[in-house]
Design a protein around this nucleic acid. Structure first.
Length: 879
DNA sequence: TGTGTCACG
DNA sequence: ACGTACGTGACACAT
């Protein structure tokens, strides 16, 4: 008979630990918190793997009153009440245990400790090895040769193992003496009093000498006179009571036979339902492979060339690449094929064969891919292109919120609970270990798996898009845009390093001057780039009261521009620090950063993340060309380095005027906002007039306009009193006044906001004009901050997202139009509401006409769309 | 690797 | 009583 092992888990204390170890962002479909359950599950998995028990039980506390409170009313007194966010997890936690066929138990009048102590004793007497898992150190008193106590520390899986030897080594006493220790020193967390002034050190010394509380009192006369001795004598009763309270009951009336605790198979059906309900996708996918015994077989063949036969029935095309940035990444392998059979080659030349070219170029040969933008960039380097792409799984997964931050097909497969495949990191490693695997077969197999997974999920995503009326968004907006973007990225924008160098010389000398000046004023030298050191200088060395200007952060004092500006009156030094910061930012991020990004062709090739933002905007990385300075003159000069790549060409820029407010006017149908735009008024002036009751535009002061502008921004962001107050530097009650007046004057906006939030609460998501969705799982949260955030998001996302959609439509239309008209012009950059081109001087007027009309007519709204344009030698001059 | 800061729309 | 304006990316520092 093999060794039986019993695992006993202290349910309350582990749930408690897990709750505090994990963020409260875990919620289930009903909006209830699940972080403690999730953490409990994780802990359970790791301890099960480690201990491999044959028997198991989770013990819970039954209630507040126990035999201990009868002995001592204040036992565990003074404890704060359990958070409702934790309390709501106890029932589902039991459900999870039930689904996993794990027995749980509670006993009126007794604590979980007593159940565990009793069963541990019975089991060890019956020849079991016992492991106890708890977050409570008191349990260590149960440790014996047969009973191991594991105490979970900070994290959920970080544990400390206690055997009698460990206890002996740590404290010099036996586990049994823990109760004597508590008797003398008490226990704050359980409100066990202990003897006055006796702490851990004193108590241990006494126990080393006299073994037990009783022993101490038998020999109390031997102690030399002291306050401590007096306390001991006076509080003998308390010491004995404390010991009693700390003693785990080993003979509780637990009505369970050990046999009943034998490990059982989980109830798969219940467990799957539970995981689904609680969004435990990771656990679900792990089950998936365990449940569907038959893992789908992937059949692939490594070939030297793609033959016409291979291509004839191919449905998928995949390029396996190595490198962080595809502008310089290496293609390792290509895959074509279908679910029955895939063909993998590392001979990329085969893509240029007439058969392959023909297949790639044939629109009637429909292809499914993952990331057509990246594929197009790679192919274009080989002078190839791909046509007939009917489904880009990257983009559809993005639209359906099925991408995780890895942006890989493996993440999609995981979210959809299909056969799991590896992530790039698993095959190529990361950091210093990022490398192509030693055995190339691994790459070939990985490439085939990705191609298979792409096919495997494509149908489901396609169907889901159809259901949600989002197919149009994929086929007519995102997929065509991917091609437009690939051309923009591939083209790149020319950057003159001489211009940057010139700016750099000036900046560096000014930075040095400022540094010297600041050190002189400070009286010490420090690293000005360190917020920590700067905070210490201002609020410790120089003695400014942080409470007046700043607030504490996790690492020190906040020293951001807002704080420094507040201090400017009393501390002239901060003006120089602000300037230093500004120039340092320009130097490191823009001068040095951009120079590093320039490639051999003298151009910068950014990459647009098309499948990332929550609203449908693009983002630009490596480098980010969507945040090149413009607001200060020093910063704006950076734009002088961005020029056309050919002689006699210029930079042309066109941007939408107030697109977000125009979108708001359209979707809210607010009469007043609409008419302001239809009459072509300055929108902030118009708002100022209405809200502040001013009759003529001439009477609107700059301050009025500024306030109105802030209110307009606030409206788009999902206005809050506090946010507006902070932005304007006024009191929240004044901000409230602005908001109230605004809503009174623009009732349609108020109605829109209420409606969009109401609807979001009902269906759990919001949509743009073109059905782009954003899910808002926290919209019905009980937590005020999270719910409020979701509500503001519900207001903002349709506005920001619709504006993004409109520019995408304009870009696609422009792309087609420019190809047709054969202009000497290239679209180079997109900055959310702005498009930047390079164009032959001779074609500027023609381009201007086309661009403005395509932007203004991209969609028909109930207010006009207006695009303003400009051009010049550099991006700086296109203003 | 996380935090603070700051650049843009 | 709660803690915020919406959406991003890159840099330097500190751990």
């Amino acid at each position: 008979m093999s060794q039986k092992r019993l695992l006993l888990i202290d349910g309350n204390s582990i749930a408690f630990k897990a709750y505090f170890a994990l963020p409260k962002t875990f919620t289930n479909k009903a909006g209830l918190h699940t972080n403690a359950i999730y953490g409990f599950h994780t802990m359970l998995d790791s301890v099960l793997a480690r201990v491999e028990p044959t028997h198991i039980l989770v013990a819970f506390d039954a209630g507040k009153t126990t035999f201990r409170t009868e002995m001592f009313q204040d036992y565990k007194g003074g404890r704060p009440t359990t958070d409702p966010e934790l309390r709501e997890q106890f029932l589902p936690l039991r459900e999870m245990l039930a689904a996993r066929s794990i027995r749980y138990y509670e006993l009126p009048n007794y604590e979980a400790d007593d159940i565990i102590g009793t069963l541990a004793t019975r089991a060890s007497e019956a020849g079991f090895l016992v492991t106890i898992v708890s977050g409570d150190r008191d349990m260590t008193q149960l440790a014996t040769e047969k009973i191991t106590v594991e105490i979970s520390k900070k994290g959920v899986s970080d544990i400390e193992e206690y055997t009698p030897a460990v206890v002996q080594e740590k404290m010099g006493i036996t586990p049994k003496q823990i109760i004597d220790l508590k008797g003398l020193m008490g226990d704050k967390s359980d409100n066990i009093p202990g003897v006055t002034k006796v702490g851990e050190k004193t108590a241990l010394k006494l126990l080393w000498e006299y073994q037990t509380v009783e022993g101490v009192y038998e020999h109390i006369d031997e102690l030399k006179a002291s306050k401590m001795k007096e306390n001991l004598i006076n509080e003998q009763e308390i010491a004995l009571l404390s010991k009693k309270l700390a003693t785990i009951n080993l003979t509780s009336p637990v009505e369970i036979e050990l046999d009943e605790l034998a490990m059982k198979e989980p109830d798969a059906e219940k467990l799957i339902a539970f995981y689904q309900e609680n969004n435990f996708n990771e656990f679900l996918s792990r089950m998936g492979s365990a449940v569907e015994e038959e893992v789908q077989e992937i059949s692939y063949e490594v070939v030297e060339n793609f033959s016409a036969e291979h291509l004839a029935n191919a449905e998928v095309f995949h390029l396996e690449t190595f490198g962080e940035n595809y502008h310089e990444a290496e293609v390792l392998a290509a895959v074509v094929g279908n679910k029955e059979k895939l063909f993998v080659t590392s001979n990329l030349d085969t893509l240029s064969s007439s058969e392959a070219k023909k297949w790639l170029d044939d629109r009637t040969k429909e292809k499914i891919v993952f990331d057509v933008k990246a594929i197009s960039v790679f192919l274009s380097k080989m002078d190839l292109s791909i046509k007939g792409v009917k489904h880009d799984v990257l983009l559809s997964a993005y639209l359906l919120d099925k991408l995780d931050k890895t942006q890989e097909i493996a993440g999609v497969a995981k979210k959809l609970h299909t056969s799991p495949i590896k992530f790039n990191e698993d095959v190529y490693g990361k950091g210093a270990k990022y490398a192509v695997p030693m055995f190339f077969e691994e790459v070939e197999s990985f490439a085939a798996q990705k191609a298979f997974a792409t096919l495997n999920v494509s149908e489901r995503l396609h169907e889901e898009l159809e259901e949600k009326e989002m197919l149009h968004l994929l086929l007519e907006m995102e997929m065509p845009l991917a091609i437009v973007l690939s051309e923009m990225e591939e083209k790149g924008i020319a950057v003159k390093p001489e211009v940057l160098d010139e700016l750099s010389v000036d900046l560096m000398s000014r930075i040095e001057e400022l540094k010297t000046k600041i050190y002189a004023q400070a009286g010490v030298e420090l690293n000005l780039n360190s917020p920590k050191q700067l905070g210490e200088l201002l609020f410790e060395t120089l003695g400014f009261d942080y409470k007046l200007y700043s607030k504490k952060t996790k690492t020190g004092y906040s020293t951001n521009a807002e704080v420094l500006e507040k201090m400017s009156v009393v501390a002239p030094i901060v003006d120089d620090i602000l300037t230093y910061r500004e120039l340092q930012k320009l130097q490191s991020t823009y001068i040095e950063g951009l120079k590093k990004s320039r490639r051999a062709d003298g151009k910068i090739h950014t990459r647009y993340q098309q499948a990332l933002t929550q609203t449908g905007r693009l983002s630009s990385v490596d480098p980010n060309l969507q945040n090149i300075p413009i607001r200060t003159e020093d910063g704006r000069k950076i734009r002088q380095a961005f020029v056309a790549s050919k002689e006699d060409w210029v930079i042309y820029s066109s941007d939408y005027s107030q697109i977000e407010l125009r979108v708001l006017a359209h979707i809210s149908q607010d009469e007043h906002l609409k008419s302001a735009f239809m009459e072509g008024q300055d929108i902030h002036t118009s708002t100022a007039m209405r809200v502040f009751g001013i009759s003529s535009p001439d009477e609107v002061t700059p301050l009025d306009r500024r306030n109105a502008k802030a209110v307009n921004f606030g409206v788009v962001y999902g206005i809050s009193e506090w946010g507006l107050a902070k932005n304007l530097g006024i009191e929240p009650y004044k901000a409230k006044d602005f908001i109230d007046k605004y809503f009174e004057k623009y009732p349609g906006i108020k109605q829109y906001m209420e409606e969009v939030v109401r609807e979001a609460k009902e269906v759990g998501y919001v949509e743009t004009m073109f059905h782009r969705r954003r899910n808002l799982p926290e919209i019905n949260e009980r937590n005020f901050a999270r719910r409020s955030f979701a509500e503001r998001t519900a207001i903002n996302s349709p506005i920001q997202g619709s504006a993004a959609d409109i520019l995408k439509i304009a870009m696609n239309n422009l792309h087609t139009r420019l190809a047709k008209e054969n202009l000497q012009a290239n679209l180079l950059l997109q900055v959310h509401d702005e498009l930047i081109f390079e164009v032959a001087k001779s074609d500027v007027e023609a381009l201007d006409k086309i661009v403005r009309s395509e932007m203004e007519d991209a969609v028909k709204l109930s207010v006009p769309l207006v695009a303003d344009s400009a051009w010049g030698e550099s991006w700086y001059d296109a203003k």
